[in-house]
Design a protein around this nucleic acid. Structure first.
Lengths: 334, 334
DNA sequence: ATACTTTTCTTAAACGTTAACTTAAAAAAG
DNA sequence: CTTTTTTAAGTTAACGTTTAAGAAAAGTAT
């Protein structure tokens, strides 16, 4: 089949191990021999067999990543950050997707463990509530870092954003701009959507502002929920001054619904949301939003897991990192 | 470290191989023994070591995918389709990203070959012109399928869209709607952008319509090129009736530039493009476009490579599959 | 009771690479 | 010159799994 080290050895009439060592630049081997071996390797188009190498080595320099959805730019942008750091540190990534299914998530974890990854980076599905499978990972002492979504249970390293604080910050800002009539269309309340809703409610309460029951819509992170959400609010009678959307996709649906009613953003009604730059800035008029720096998240998550891997023996405590988010003022707020 | 088959064997006082066979449901093993082995395996949290398995097996049921950019929804949506089929056929995917760099692309190919993937699915970078590295893959008889972008050299299996025809079709449609003054802002002319431009020019020529030199802007597939492109056209004097954009991102930039001039789409000027649904439909007003069904492409590409792998011995000829594209009429065309 | 099957399990070897030792020859030290 | 050190290789075994071939036990036919 493929050219292997023993083929090179045979050609040169030397032992297999000499080839290994020569290719590794071991001090055991003379310079001339190294040159000879490398040249023949090149000529024969030798490509090392990682499978075999991994079997002897304890480390594979491979990391497993599990995403809920690859077409969501929030996640793909995180992965991009991860890849940058991984490359710099010469690790490689095996990317798997759970499609928001718990069973797929477990399968992926097993698959990645089977492949002897050095560590796991996981963004849980919205349905993940039991730590069971992750306990198994822990028992194997396999480094694991959760990223990008709030983790439902403690005892694990994680990195992400504080959805509650972000929503509170955005709400406070709206209030500081004199807005008092604010509606909220949330994403999945089981996860980040819920924390964002809570942050919104908390800020309203702190400022002793009333929250209209009809203006709290619990949805999911997709445009259609924004679209329907706005229509519900519209049909409820009085219109709020601002619609606070759980994320950019919801805002996109809200934009569509607002236009359908022939209302103007931001003249007739303002819209704000929480999301990351790449998506938020695609909408027109440009969204005023809290920016979640996803690429940075990816970079930091990768740095964290690598640090966990490379200091495996030393006991290092659990870290729960929260990254800063930024208020970006654009045109969707009057 | 991890529990291995020999640990199970030791616990039961049987041979290592009996465990292998029991877990494989080999007819060599009695039903009671199988039950016992599986139960102990479960209890001990045994996870098979794929690295070791792959060393003996000729097949790894693993496929390598190389993308130019993971944050581009065009590509991530293709991958989504691939993953669906891969899962169904119980293959897994190792996803790598070349970031449009030729050297990174080569590195990724080596890495994937090192990992003993059964086949490669490659979307080339815009700079890839030499077949050299791919010739090496071919020499190793490793199945390889190009997808998503025109391939610069022949002799390889590929699957994609016909950019020339798509652009011609869209242009013909514009002409059939009575448009004669059409501008084109292209993507990368070295690749699909060039074929789309050529298709446009061809349709114009066929219909004996004049093409204004100032209305042909050669750019790249990013919003800023659309933005600048439109401004150049605007500053050239007379305004065309339609701007045909190389893709949706270019259209996005064009939209922004048009709005800045306080013009209305489609009342003052129309905009059309070539792209896939998920992106195209995010713009407002909704874009009239040629839809590239990316997810289908992913599915078909995966089916093709699997077929190539599983019929490796039989000599099968080179296939160059072209998928259908669809004209979607929306609101951006008057 | 012998020979032949069938069932069930074991032994041996292999996959490609590497880590840990060992050996042989050459160079340096005494 | 002998002894020690250095240099440059080679040998052996291991990583965890699987395949192929072989052996022991049990059953069946003659």
């Amino acid at each position: 089949m493929n050219v292997k080290q023993s083929d090179i050895a045979a050609k040169l009439g030397i032992s297999r191990v000499t080839v290994t060592k020569a290719l590794q630049d071991s001090p055991d081997i003379s310079t001339e021999m190294k040159v000879k071996v490398k040249q023949i390797a090149e000529e024969m188009d030798y490509i090392p067999n990682l499978t075999a190498r991994h079997l002897t080595a304890k480390k594979t320099r491979t990391l497993g990543v599990i995403l809920p959805d690859i077409t969501n730019m929030y996640f793909s942008s995180i992965v991009r950050g991860m890849m940058e750091v991984a490359e710099r540190e010469s690790y490689h990534i095996i990317l798997t997707v759970s499609r928001e299914e718990k069973t797929k998530e477990s399968e992926n974890i097993f698959k990645l463990l089977s492949m002897n990854v050095d560590g796991l980076l996981v963004c849980q599905t919205l349905d993940t509530v039991e730590a069971e499978i992750f306990e198994k990972v822990k028992k194997r002492k396999k480094p694991l870092v959760f990223f990008g979504r709030p983790v439902g249970f403690s005892g694990y390293d994680s990195i992400g954003f504080d959805d509650f604080l972000a929503a509170e910050k955005l709400t406070e800002y709206l209030i500081s701009k004199g807005k008092t009539k604010i509606a909220h269309i949330s994403g999945d309340i089981k996860s980040d959507g819920g924390y964002r809703l809570d942050g919104f409610l908390s800020a309203m309460k702190k400022n002793k502002l009333e929250v209209n029951e009809d203006w709290i819509i619990k949805g999911k992170f997709f445009p259609e929920y924004g679209y329907e959400g706005f229509n519900k609010i519209f049909n409820a009678g009085t219109l709020p001054e601002v619609i606070f959307c759980g994320n950019g996709m919801i805002a996109q649906g809200v934009y569509d619904a607002i236009r359908e009613k022939e209302l103007k953003i931001p003249e007739d009604i303002s819209v704000v949301a929480v999301d990351h730059k790449k998506f938020a800035e695609m909408l027109y008029p440009k969204l005023t939003y809290i920016d979640y720096p996803t690429r940075t998240l990816g970079c930091e998550a990768m740095k964290l897991i690598i640090q966990k891997i490379e200091s495996k023996n030393k006991k290092n405590k659990i870290e729960n990192i929260i990254l800063d988010t930024f208020l970006i003022e654009n045109d969707s707020l009057a």
